[in-house]
Simulated assay, not measured.
Amino acid sequence: MRIGYTLMTEQAGPKELVRHAAVAEAAGFDFEVSSDHYSPWLSEQGHAPYAWSVLGAVTQVTERVELMTYVTCPTLRYHPAVIAQKAATTQVLSDGRFTLGLGSGENVNEHVIGRGWPSANVRHELLSEAVQIIGGLFDGGHFDYQGEHFRVDSAKLWDLPERRVPIAVAVSGSQSIQRFAAVADAMVAVEPDAELCREWDATRPGPPARKIAQLPVSWGHDREAAVRRAHEQFRWFSGGWKVNAELPGVAGFAAATQYVREEDVAAGIACGPGIEPIAEGVRKFAEAGFTDVALVQIGGDQQDGFLDFAEKELLPALREI
């Protein structure tokens, strides 16, 4: 299993994220993923820089780690033809280290363009067409497309990378797996669900594919402070993606989580100085069949301490396990 680091754009500014990316590579992480949001989930997080500018800078301060969006919604804020151009450019800049992670999006980020928020089924239709368009542009040459939701007129990517950009798609159940497993190179999910992995491999042609997960942690020497920080900035995580995708802004997330207690958050997120709680979370994903896990250290001002801990203690321990 490969262990990754998350550039959480909701909790740090662009310059800090670029610096964290360089330090994370030096610490020994295998890959780095970036969120791509217009808004944080909670006002306490306090940030939301443009992920693609950050990724462009990260390609120039790193040399080894793979890079990935975790995940980009290519349907409302961005037209899929523009996402294809961004991904191809990032692949060129990174010398072939980039994977395009895609998902159906969240209301909090996509409503800003004033087109409303479609139902889940429509969002899957939009994403399906977007994947077709992006793949068609990655094939090279001029590309035309006429679908129910999108139209592309003689588009061409003029700077194609030598290595085609792999596409990973976020799934949550059988419906999305059946739709996307055959057209994606990798799976993204946030729950250690073995059935998702089994169905993905059974549905997708060819050998088993990468299955990429994400695990939030709140590391710190003072466990009580780590629990408070996790509750302050990550209590939204308890709602689950089916709820979180529908909420329109930080006020909605604050209201939806007003009764979530610190002990509720601590029960689901590893908090404090220990290695074993983090290792247990990683182990669950490994046993479910995931090949990659990206860790999220909660707290933008806690990254330096966490990265030092990861280099000296956590990553060696995880690899030994």
Rank of each mutant, 00 (worst) to 15 (best):
A194D: 10
T203N: 05
A213H: 06
E199D: 13
P208Q: 11
R179Y: 00
R210F: 03
R198C: 00
D185C: 06
R179I: 02
V190S: 12
P192C: 06
A182P: 08
V188S: 00
W200E: 00
M187L: 11
Q214I: 13
R210G: 13
G220Y: 04
G206K: 06
A225H: 11
A225F: 05
R204G: 09
W219G: 04
P192S: 04
P216W: 02
A209F: 07
D185M: 06
V190N: 12
A184M: 07
L196N: 03
A202P: 03
S218K: 09
A225M: 11
G206C: 11
E191N: 15
P205L: 01
Q214V: 14
R198F: 01
L215H: 12
E191W: 12
A181T: 04
D185A: 04
A184H: 02
W200S: 03
F180S: 00
T203Y: 02
A184P: 08
D201V: 10
W219C: 05
P205S: 09
I212L: 11
E195P: 01
K211L: 06
D185F: 02
I212C: 02
A189C: 11
P208D: 09
K211F: 03
K211W: 03
V188K: 00
A189I: 02
T203H: 05
W219I: 09
L215K: 08
Q214G: 11
L196G: 05
C197G: 06
A225K: 13
P192Y: 00
K211C: 07
H221R: 13
A194F: 04
D201E: 12
E224N: 13
Q214M: 14
A181S: 07
